[in-house]
Every structure is written in structure tokens, then in C-alpha cells.
Amino acid sequence: MHISRSIEILVGFFVALGFVAMFFLSMEVSNLSSVNGDDGYDITASFENVGSLKVRAPVAMAGVNVGRVTAINFDPETFEAVVTMSIEARYNQLPSDSNASILTAGLLGEQYVGLEPGGEEEVLEEGSELELTQSALVLEQIIGQFLFSSESEEE
């Protein structure tokens, strides 16, 4: 059977379009472009409570995404949560005494890790640990504290 050249061209065009669409989905729609796998460095931070922080949650400094949470583990000795974050390689000037806190994006949004720069000359690098951390706010605890303090005011 002879298939005409135009059919071959159309099929080639069709397959190429499929690849373009796949590229579009991976680069524009999904996060493939922002996860640059290897060329980042990992830092860790321990929190008393991570709330509902999830793996892959953003790590932001001054509101700009600088990395992602790559792992959340529990340390059985300190009873704290150890959060591993991958910071993009181009942000290699972050002071080593920066502090990390777990924040919530908007009222109903997801939780993310917010970094605030410190004043050290030394910079964060692969394996650094952030000393200053602030846990997630847990709604029940806040309400509990509020009730407790208002009771003590009444006395």
C-alpha cells in the first residue's frame, strides 16, 4: 500500500503537536519549570509544630518563592518536626541566622515556610540548619490562650 506524502506529513505534524502540548502542560501549567531538581541546596529547620504544612509547599522570602519543602520528618529525640527545604541555587546569599516560620497564605490558604533574613555575614549552604524557628499557629491554641488571658483580666 502506498501512503501519500501528505499523510505522512500530517501524521508528523500531529505527533509534533502532541509534544508541544506536553511541553506546554509541563512547563506552563505544572511546576516542572520551577523545580530544578539538582541545582538547589538543602537546608533544614526544626519546628515544634508544623501544623498542616505539606511536602512541596513553597518556601518564600519577602513574599517571593525561593524554594520548596522537600521532606518533613519527626525527630524522636527532640520530639520536633524536621523540615527539609530545597532552596534554588541562585539564592545563595541568604544569611545563616535567618529565621523560619510557618505561615498561612490568606485565611483559608495553604501553609508555607516564610524566611526572614538575619544579619550574619555567613550565608546558608547545603546542610545548614536554621536555628530560629516559629511554629505554625494552631487555631485551638490561639483560642485557648485568648480565653485564658481574658479570664485572667477579669480577675
Binding site: 502542560l25 509541563s26 501549567v29 505544572s30 511546576n31 520551577s34 523545580v35 513553597p58 518563592n65
Partner: peptide
């Protein structure tokens, strides 16, 4: 539209 999408759609999970 695009940034929220990129933040939430995961390549290996979704695509």
C-alpha cells in the same frame, strides 16, 4: 491564573 496553576499543579502527580 498562570502562577496559581503552576504552584498547585504538580508534574509527576498530575501531568
Amino acid at each position: 491564573y498562570w502562577s496559581q496553576m503552576q504552584a498547585k499543579i504538580d508534574f509527576s502527580q498530575d501531568v
